[in-house]
Design a protein around this nucleic acid. Structure first.
Lengths: 234, 234
DNA sequence: CACAAAATTCTGGTTAACCAATATTATAAA
DNA sequence: TTTATAATATTGGTTAACCAGAATTTTGTG
């Protein structure tokens, strides 16, 4: 297990080295937005790493919109100036693994917004999906089973109902981290789960009634315990 | 250009097909959390696609915490039940490219939070970096040059100062989309840029003074025009 | 010289062979 | 039969050869 982590860190360090080398190269060669960077083969040769390593690094920079690859043509610097480019690459290099506190803090922020938007934009189909998740959650809890998944599905259903594709994506992205940390820190107690049934119902009803203020308020109530726990361990 | 988009869409469709096939396989074989899924070779053979396609699909599911690959051992279903797994995979398959409106909506939400947190947690080093970005922005605007990048760097500096690694990452991820759409919709006018100088300064001073309420308020002012524009084009 | 056409080079993407570590099976000793 | 050991098969990861298409250079033609 330890070994695996080290391996991943090593890979990440290699990738970060390549990324910073690409940045240096762009600066040294005074490449401007739209210019083509050297081919993958040349870079792998120059940096003394495998071509797949270079490809992975480029892919990461593509994800953040720094580079753009066109098949059979080349890889190009995105349409942002060197200032922003350097700043963003530095930020990317310094990105840390998210800590539990920041995850929860962010999740609460996102949930308050998605609930509010969902109460304004939810469709009938959204309501059905939310109620399904809600019922599944209640069943599990009543049977004394763990219901972390059903809990999350309800919240993801809200995110979907928010009609905001960006928020929906962000919620999906932070979800795995939330699950992992929840299990690691044993956040879920049985009492909380039981309270959750009514709290979920309240949120659902507020969204159904198209009452954004109430929805936000009910989400706040739902996350109050989590919020305090999150700050108590920091 | 059109071709490129089609190619990417094709690739995405292939990937989505593979992802849904993996999901079906997990369901059909009743695989539980922690179980091993068939090897990449078997999957590529079974699905009639190349192994690299399978690897890409697995990588995406790893990103969302659905699967977990261990070298020389296998790829395993993450520690979430089939219910959440199916729900999340369906969500992933339905993920849409973010639209401008949802991007701006999300950005404003994130910025209000990062400014608030930054005013509580900023270090002296953060202040220096923010002021650097702020000055660079002013210089450019006064010289009549475009300053979208410097604008963003100021906001990314705030995100960094928020001390919330998740929020910082999310800001970085939505930034490229923001830049692209800004240029596409020609959001930035010269008047707005000039107003921006003072507005940035106001935000900075509020954060420096450790006044979260004021910081939030100043961010609201700063985004007011953008907010209205965003809703006018929808 | 100008310009079109063909040959060549170069590109990112794909495929298949290879690697080291692991998991499994077969074997043998107790 | 049990258990320790060795041989084998399987795994995700890596490398290098290959591909189709784009970019460039060379060639041919007016």
């Amino acid at each position: 297990m330890k070994l695996e982590i080290n391996v991943k860190n090593d890979n990440r360090e290699v990738q970060n080295t390549i990324i910073s080398q690409i940045r240096d190269l762009i600066n040294y060669k005074n490449l401007e937005p739209g210019d083509k960077i050297p081919s993958e083969r040349m870079l792998s040769d120059k940096f003394g790493v495998s071509r797949s390593n270079v490809r992975d690094a480029i892919q990461k920079l593509e994800f953040y919109g720094i580079l753009s690859s066109i098949p059979q043509s080349g890889t190009f610097v995105a349409n942002i100036g060197v200032t922003a480019l350097n700043g963003m690459i530095d930020d990317i290099l310094r990105l840390k693994e998210p800590d539990f506190k920041s995850l929860v803090e962010t999740r609460i922020l996102l949930e308050l917004k998605t609930a509010r938007l969902a109460s304004l934009r939810r469709t009938e189909a959204d309501l059905i999906q939310m109620e399904d998740a809600l019922n599944a959650y209640r069943e599990k809890v009543i049977n004394g089973e763990k219901a972390v998944e059903e809990d999350l599905l309800f919240h993801l259903a809200i995110a979907k109902a928010s009609g905001n594709s960006t928020l929906n994506t962000l919620m999906l992205m932070i979800t795995p981290g939330i699950i992992t940390n929840f299990e690691e820190y044993h956040v879920c107690s049985e009492d909380l789960a039981f309270n959750g049934i009514q709290e979920h119902r309240d949120i659902f009803e507020a969204i159904k009634a198209k009452n954004p203020g109430l929805a936000k308020e009910k989400v706040k109530v739902h996350f109050k315990a989590l919020y305090q726990y999150c700050y108590s361990i920091s």
